[in-house]
Nucleic acid binder design. Structure first.
Length: 400
RNA sequence: UGACCUAUGGUGUAAUGGUAGCACUUCAGAUUUUGGUUCUGUCAGUCCAGGUUCGAAUCCUGGUAGGUCAA
């Protein structure tokens, strides 16, 4: 079996290659270059060149062939342009989810297959399993990584059965500490390399600066919304009921964001563009003088207004439910797809590393309503809600 | 134009005449393969000019600025 490993120069993909090699597979290393523009990036201009040389050293150490592929064009088109577009619309994208769907398990996968590989392996912390259905077809499952602290299944929430059929995750059953130890034991040059952070392949960026390449600065007002806005507000009362006591007729109301306007509060400052901010954000507002920090509770890119509230427990920060449009629902397990009218209890996370939350999901003809048992902080349009049954990731969708 | 009140880091506020402190913000680190969150650390101040006092943010005089009430 010939397996192409996406070797990034980090410790995880290095150990993935190591394990496959030790298992006796024919392994080839492939290093992707996806980004070479350092505009707006913080520290380290040409980080990828160093990563490449580490990856090359790892390949040499493991005695496997090393290939270099440049996917910058497709990355820019499928990931970076999507980012700009989403921010422009006032949503908060997740580039790394797209990077996996469009690059690692699409453009890169195809390149690998063209090089004669049967499978593609990555250093993600998640596990793949499969079983045969009654028709004798193989159905693939993604399970959370065994290391509870590193589970990266979330970033793979948009993969298809087709993509999964070609994927291998060699380190999903290991703890990070074990991966480090294996790397050290094998003498891999990446053993002590620091974990990567920030946008995958781009790195840590000063986001407002990065976005200013395409989005212009536009001064607008910051409006503080106070507690009294919520008293008597129908929405806030749902926060105190469990997910299993919701009436179907209330789903729309529960899952819709609060809507604010200038009369909802008081202008307390100015900002440089509503599209540079996201819900739940605390830093970068430049407004002091409050007893507690103020957080963004809503943005309006059309009117260019940012709404904020004081304190971690501000009601505007919490919502009981969310909605996913019919055309933005993705099932990793199409065989488990919900029919209109169906109701199921699952576990959901709305961001990477968030503990799974108890929910009840309602499928209607318009889309999917997710009602949480506990109100959730910072439900943000554009981000992905991902549903699980125990350890298995079943599907995902873009929050409206 | 008459009377009164107030003036402390970028912001909001503490300090019986005795080392100007806290919170927020900013910035920097740590955590995090998205945004964001969280944690730690840091910078920064007594409106101006005189006076009283061993010693003034504090008391006195004048100035400046803002506010309130009278008109």
């Amino acid at each position: 079996m010939k397996i192409a490993v996406g070797l990034s120069g980090g410790v995880d993909s290095s150990v993935a290659a190591l394990l496959l090699k030790e298992a006796g597979h024919e392994v080839i290393a492939m290093f992707m270059q996806n980004w070479n523009d350092t505009t707006g990036t913080l520290h380290g201009d040409c980080a990828w060149e160093e990563d490449k040389s580490v990856a090359e050293m790892v390949a040499k150490k493991l005695d496997i062939p090393f290939h270099f592929v440049d996917l910058s064009d497709v990355y820019r088109k499928k990931v970076v342009d999507y980012m700009f577009e989403e921010y422009k619309l006032g949503r908060t994208p997740n580039p790394d989810v797209l990077c996996n769907r469009e690059i690692k398990f699409d453009a890169f996968l195809k390149t690998a297959l063209n090089l004669g590989a049967d499978y593609v392996a990555t250093g993600h912390y998640c596990r793949k399993e499969s079983f045969l259905n009654e028709k004798g077809e193989e159905v693939f499952r993604i399970l959370a990584g065994t290391d509870p602290n590193k589970d990266q299944s979330y970033f793979l929430c948009q993969l298809t059965q087709e993509q999964l059929s070609k994927a291998i995750f060699p380190i999903g059953h290991l703890l990070k500490s074990e991966v480090r130890r294996l790397a050290a034991k094998a003498g891999l040059p990446s053993a002590d390399k620091k974990d990567s952070q920030g946008i995958c392949f781009v790195g840590k960026v000063d986001l407002p600066v990065f976005l200013q390449q395409k989005l212009s600065i536009k001064e607008g007002v910051v409006v503080e919304v106070f507690m009294d806005f919520y008293s008597g507000n129908a929405l806030s009362k749902y926060n105190f009921i469990g997910y299993d006591t919701v009436e179907l007729s209330l789903l729309d109301e529960i899952s819709a964001p609060y809507s604010y306007d200038l009369s909802s509060g008081r202008v307390i400052g100015m900002h440089q563009g509503a599209h540079f901010y996201t819900i739940g954000q605390r830093k970068g507002l430049n407004i002091g003088g409050h007893v507690e920090s103020i957080f963004v509770i809503s943005t309006d890119v059309d009117k260019n207004i940012i709404y904020v509230g004081e304190g971690q427990s501000h009601p505007g920060l919490y919502r009981k439910g969310l909605f996913i449009n019919e055309n933005e629902i993705h099932w990793i397990r199409p065989d488990l797809k919900m029919a209109t009218g169906e109701i199921r209890d699952y576990l959901v996370r709305i961001r990477y590393r968030q503990p799974l939350q108890k929910v009840r999901i309602y499928k209607t003809e318009n889309g999917l309503y997710i009602v949480f048992d506990e109100p959730q902080r910072g439900i943000t349009p554009g981000q992905f809600a991902v549903w699980y049954a125990d350890e298995e990731m079943l599907g995902s969708g873009v929050i409206s």
